[in-house]
Simulated assay, not measured.
Amino acid sequence: MNKKPSVLLVGATGYLGSFLLKELVNQNFSVKVVVRNPQKLPQVENRPYEVIEGEVTKPSTIKNCCKDVDVVISTVGITRQKDGLTYMDVDYQANVNVLEEAKQSSVKKFIYVSVLKGDKKRDVKICAAKEKFVDELSQSGLDYTIIRPNGFFSDMTDFYQMAKRGRVYLFGDGQGKMNPIHGEDLAEVCVSAIDKSVLEIKVGGPEVLTLNEIAHLAFSALNKKPKITYIPDWIRLAILKLAKTFTSSKTYGPIEFFLTFMGLDNMTAPKHGQHTLEEYFNQGAGANRP
């Protein structure tokens, strides 16, 4: 029987990374992780994996992290701005730092998680950083796969929190469609890419929903009467302009990403998985994280 490749996972303490670590270990891969704070790693019962303490934004702390590694999987990126770091610092440069180590250690494959339509939205700061790294990876000489999910269940927690406060605000008519994916289902896709010769995988969850339907699922999970306010799209565009003018890049970045993608009519991707958003909301919108 062929020996499974050894894997370096970068970003193991994030939403997707925590599911990925569990999936890799459960499938008996030899796993190493690079983390800044090992205490934030998810619990994986009685399964060994190697922990490297380091910061991917500081190349000297991850030297030789790819030694004896066959495959790198990176989910590194900023979800909430912190530490004064920019998207270019993390989503681009930190991944470049890992890529340089991968090249030096002759890693066979690099799997990177970007975002659906990110290559079409390079004017958005987070997408610009992610796609700049995709460009770098595609020219690296390594085999690679870009995973393009259209949204995590964890992103949908914003709807749940609005519903919890009593009212959900939607831009336009709320008919924009998407099929966000659970971290566990997406982890399966990422791990399956190890053995696939494919440059890009676009993926979403099993159910296509409108933003209206997502809002109603959130209210239903909370046993609350739906209250939805529809905000004209010109206000979304005005907020984008005002935020860019009057807020710092730390504040503006997440607002820009959210408002840009909430304004798209269609963020659907090929269906995968079995976890439903209704199930996620009913469990408290995040209580089922590993």
Rank of each mutant, 00 (worst) to 15 (best):
S6D: 07
K125Y: 14
K130S: 12
N95V: 04
S30A: 15
E184Y: 01
E256N: 14
I62F: 04
A221D: 02
G176W: 00
D119L: 08
K130I: 05
W234L: 11
N282Q: 14
L170T: 01
A285G: 02
C190A: 15
A163L: 09
N288Q: 13
Q283H: 12
E100I: 07
V44P: 03
V51S: 02
K117G: 00
V208Q: 06
D119N: 14
I235H: 01
M88F: 14
L264R: 06
L209G: 06
N64S: 14
T13C: 01
A102E: 09
T260D: 11
D143G: 10
E207R: 03
V107C: 11
D185Q: 02
I62K: 00
Q81E: 12
Q27T: 07
R148H: 14
Q161W: 08
R289F: 05
A287N: 14
S30K: 15
N288P: 01
P232I: 07
V33A: 04
V35M: 01
T276L: 00
F261R: 07
F110E: 13
V76K: 03
V69G: 09
F171I: 05
E213N: 04
L199Q: 14
Q81D: 10
T268H: 05
H275W: 10
D70Q: 10
N150S: 12
K103C: 08
E45M: 06
D173R: 04
T57K: 11
T210W: 03
N37H: 01
A221T: 07
Q175I: 04
T260P: 06
W234M: 11
D89I: 05
E55V: 04
G284Y: 00
K108V: 10
V113G: 03
G166K: 03
P232A: 03
S114N: 10
E256C: 08
H182I: 07
I231M: 06
T268G: 03
N95S: 08
N28E: 14
K103N: 08
T13P: 02
L237F: 06
K82C: 09
N46P: 08
F257W: 11
K227H: 14
L21Q: 07
G174M: 00
A221S: 12
L237K: 15
I235A: 02
T210S: 04
K164C: 08
P149I: 05
D155G: 13
F133N: 13
V34T: 09
E184C: 09
